[in-house]
């Protein structure tokens, strides 16, 4: 009962997306990395050299990329930026405990199937009319049996959608470490061959190999089998210069002086022993908050009132509060 659905769809004329174009134009690897860096920058994503290199390699080798790092350093944003550059749709699969293939891959539209059988009940008599005996009726029915298990009744979930996308897609499998081991194993076929086996339909290959990102917060160790199939990128917290560049791009309204100070302040927080240190996303939120408050530079009261944007635990806020004078002073003196 296999219906061929888009199997081995011809690649057609390749989508000339930004990444590929950048790659073709550049003569040396270093140049392509630099142009990827520029393209990401144009999307407001300031990348480090490691990130740009990883992207260059991943798309040249057509391999999935496993991105790890503390929360809030821009793992998910990276996939979004790549989607924007390439013009390919971003298909996102958020992982959680209990995620199974029915939610990740495909589902039959039961209700539609049921409805149709009811509606078509009358037609059944017509179809079977003239058939002599049981055997002939069954033979007649056989001619139609795949009707209800065809593409019209298939509800594609993110993974299948990504494979079906004619121009290719950016597939983001977010927080893979939250999913069960079984799901991780299930992904292996997709990651190594860009294909998926569905019992009712057969093996489905990608029309265009999607650009796959997996992100993980390291809540548990991923299996070696999964890691082996991916390139691995670790995004750490950015250094001061990079973070300033990120703030400049994301919160252009923040003035130079404020920007330098707030980044210095956040960087010094990261050196403290806190339950959760602020990530880039918190820095950006904080910068926006400060801009809203028309701040031109940091001062103690201002920081104290807005600290809750930066820190998410009361313990942390109290701990930082004790040293606030020191920290603000240091951030202000640090005008490099």
């Amino acid at each position: 009962m296999t219906t061929a659905i888009h199997q081995n769809a011809p690649a057609g004329d390749q989508a000339r997306d930004g990444l590929r174009a950048a790659n073709d134009a550049a003569r040396t690897p270093s140049e392509s990395v630099a142009s990827i860096h520029r393209l990401l920058g144009a999307q407001g994503y300031i990348s480090s050299e490691a990130i740009a290199t990883a992207l260059f390699i991943a798309q040249s080798l057509e391999k999935p990329m496993l991105v790890e790092g503390p929360p809030g350093v821009g793992k998910t944003e990276l996939a979004k930026a790549v989607s924007a550059i390439t013009g390919k749709p971003l298909i996102r699969l958020q992982c959680y405990e209990g995620l199974d293939e029915a939610k990740a891959l495909y589902e039959w539209k039961y209700s539609k199937q049921l409805l149709y059988t009811q509606v078509l009940k009358d037609k059944l008599a017509d179809v079977l009319s003239g058939a002599e005996g049981l055997k002939a009726s069954v033979a007649r029915l056989h001619e139609f049996d795949d009707t209800f298990f065809s593409e019209e009744f298939l509800e594609p979930r993110p993974l299948l959608k990504a494979l079906w996308e004619p121009e290719g897609a950016v597939l983001l499998i977010d927080e893979i470490d939250k999913a069960d081991d079984e799901f991780e194993a299930f992904l292996l076929e997709l990651l190594s061959d860009y294909q998926i086996s569905i019992p009712e339909l057969g093996t489905i290959r990608a029309r265009q190999k999607p650009i796959v990102f997996l992100t993980s917060n390291n809540t548990r160790d991923l299996s070696d089998a999964l890691k082996r199939r991916c390139l691995h990128l670790h995004i750490p917290f950015p250094d001061q210069a990079l973070e300033r560049a990120i703030i400049r791009s994301r919160v252009p309204d923040a003035e130079e002086k404020l920007r330098t100070q707030l980044v210095a302040f956040v960087q010094s927080l990261r050196e403290m022993d806190l339950k959760k240190v602020p990530a880039i996303s918190e820095t950006i939120d904080w910068a926006r908050t400060l801009v809203l408050l028309h701040a031109r530079e940091l001062d103690r009261a201002l920081v104290e009132n807005t600290l809750n944007v930066l820190l998410k635990f009361q313990d942390d806020i109290e701990r930082v509060g004790e040293k606030l004078n020191d920290l603000v002073g240091k951030a202000k003196s640090n005008l490099r």
Binding site: A50, D221, L231, H232
Partner: peptide
């Protein structure tokens, strides 16, 4: 960077 992505995964 390139080699680290292919070889070192934790």
């Amino acid at each position: 960077h390139g080699l680290s992505q292919a070889l070192a995964k934790s």
